[in-house]
Design a binder for these strands. Structure first.
Lengths: 336, 336
DNA sequence: ATCATGTGCACAATCGTTTTCGCTAATCTA
DNA sequence: TAGATTAGCGAAAACGATTGTGCACATGAT
């Protein structure tokens, strides 16, 4: 084994193999150009293995100016949905030999210290799931020259991998319309992020196509989280002429809506039908299984990494939209 | 502003301020020992600010052998509960000036490449939420000299921050006993991890104290996830003499049990009472609100970082056990 | 005026890599 | 066989920071 206190370095291997450190470097990284006789390479390899050498990432990065590392920025680590995308992204990045560094950067906006910490040269590229529609910070990053790809949320013309939220909102609403609902409420997300804005837009489009003029009072704003969704659901279900169906911006909001319905002694789906978004793991398991819009989260995470890799290689890349799909279950009254 | 292409370095600042790079370094980091006249320091500060200097982390780490970075290993990024702990850990680490790097390392066991990648000198310390009870890999890490703290799962005598799972399992079971249940089933976790083993142990202890001899057939093994929990619940509820209550190892398993109960046309809590663990965000929102055992996840995440910081400072640290608490809701028939 | 005492800073050596540049010796061409 | 080519590898200069050492110069005391 190796001496406990001393990590192996190029120099120690060189000494062991009786060659110069630079030769060791060349031999180990197997450069195509430089020809080192197989015998020497083998001897060096053996010595390196013997000392179980691991190149020092700091020294390497200092010299090469590449850290083999991509930064992932997520609004909240506790978001199961984004968690899935990020886990997939992490795997894919590792396929390319990259490490990932995840930061959560909620509510930090343009002054995000979290993202700044990713920027200070430690990372070769960024995947951001935190973008807002008019995000001045993106320009800052763009100006810094650090390549990035948006995930889940789009913004401007920056390359992004997103679900087609317009279609998703449209499908969810159409699903409810097809079931005979006319007064359909929407617990929206913030209009400042693409997912919130586009799903609401899809919702209104579906209504209009069905000859129903969308009204403002049937859209209650949420913030993607349980607390704000509860408030929104209270507003909708407290309406004098309450909706018979609710399309919620995500599954946790849908769950909150179910809780509020229960408090109002309304049955789901008989009195109020509910549709969520993202089709999270819990949806089929709920006492009243939740109808939800499914988007290929894992594929999105992987794809974002692939796009980033292309950007790192200097290629131009285009944004990608993934097709959503309604998974009908009991909460909308469609299955059972 | 600064020239776009060129990042500021100590050298460029030195040039601007008319001093030597080493002086700039000393001035900027404000060493207490070295006396540099205030005037010079001010001049250097100004130059640094002007060029908006950021020290290169790689160069710094190469020289100082400290990366100001802690590695977090989590079984799955999609676990909401661990996600909360890790988010808290991340914040706390930043308070100390440390970056965090999160990897998910499921099912990799002793050969975990994810954790190995954290070890190769990039990190100053590790927080592991992946430990199994007899985890040979921990010895490897210990031998490498890299300080670490276990989180959520304990193992051997290594310093750990965990909930008191024995008490948690005991409380959950006692809660059901107090409600008059006698045949209480348990969807367990793997016995190879402390949380699984200890909660089951607490479960048996409570039964024995109530004069009930725990039987093997009332404990069905799960893997913390929905699929295995569904299978376990099927086993329990398919029993000729089925249990009237189930204590599940976590909330998603409890949810799965509810789904299976529903499939068997059993009412919750009338026909079967259910208790979960971790009191996740969704628990109070479920159509049948879930009774669950609450542990202070955020505090645990923070504490783990604090312990690690102490270890980094060379102090000896002791493990910490956090007190759990039953939050009674409708699924156990205790509230409503 | 001279020598001890410090202060303020420059010099240079690291940390472990990668990479450019040449030097030596072997091989090839004529 | 002499001269041109080339393969193989050593020397050394980066990358950008930290840090031990020591040279000037100013100040003080004698």
């Amino acid at each position: 084994m190796d001496t406990p206190g001393h990590k192996a370095t190029l120099k120690s291997i060189a000494q062991a193999a009786g060659v110069h450190p630079s030769t060791v470097s060349r031999a180990l990284m197997g450069m195509p150009g430089s020809r080192i006789p197989a015998a020497t390479v083998e001897r060096i390899r053996a010595a390196a293995a013997e000392l179980n050498y691991e190149p020092d990432p700091w020294a390497k990065s200092l010299r090469t100016r590449r850290g083999m590392m991509v930064g992932l920025a997520i609004p909240r680590l506790t978001d199961v949905v984004l968690g899935q995308m990020f886990e997939a992204a992490q795997w894919r990045a590792r396929d390319f030999g990259y490490q990932t560094m995840t930061v959560s950067a909620e509510k930090e906006g343009a002054e995000s210290t979290s993202i700044k910490s990713l920027m200070d040269r430690r990372t070769d590229g960024l995947i951001l799931a935190t973008a807002t529609l008019h995000d001045p910070f993106l320009q800052v990053i763009e100006a810094s020259g650090l390549p990035f790809v948006l995930l889940n949320r789009s913004s401007g013309d920056y390359p992004a991998v997103c679900g087609d939220d317009l279609v998703g909102g449209y499908l969810a609403t159409t699903h409810l319309l097809d079931l005979g609902h006319v007064r359909i409420g929407h617990i929206s997300g913030p209009t400042s992020v693409s997912t919130g804005k586009l799903r609401a837009q899809g919702y209104r489009k579906a209504l209009r196509e069905a000859g129903i003029e969308p009204t403002r009072d049937l859209v209650a704003p949420g913030e993607f989280d349980a607390d704000s969704a509860i408030e929104a659901a209270e507003t909708l279900l407290g309406l004098p002429h309450r909706p018979t169906a609710i399309f919620a911006i995500n599954d946790i909001s849908a769950l909150a809506a179910m809780a509020v319905a229960r408090r109002h002694r309304l049955r789901v789906p008989e009195d109020v039908a509910i549709v969520g978004y993202n089709d999270s793991e819990m949806s089929p398991l709920l006492p009243i299984p939740l109808t939800s819009v499914r988007v290929p989260l894992l594929d999105m995470g992987k794809l974002a990494v692939e796009l980033l890799m292309k950007r790192l290689a200097g290629e131009k890349v285009d944004s990608v939209l993934m097709e959503p799909q309604v998974v009908a279950r009991e909460s909308s009254g469609a299955a059972g």
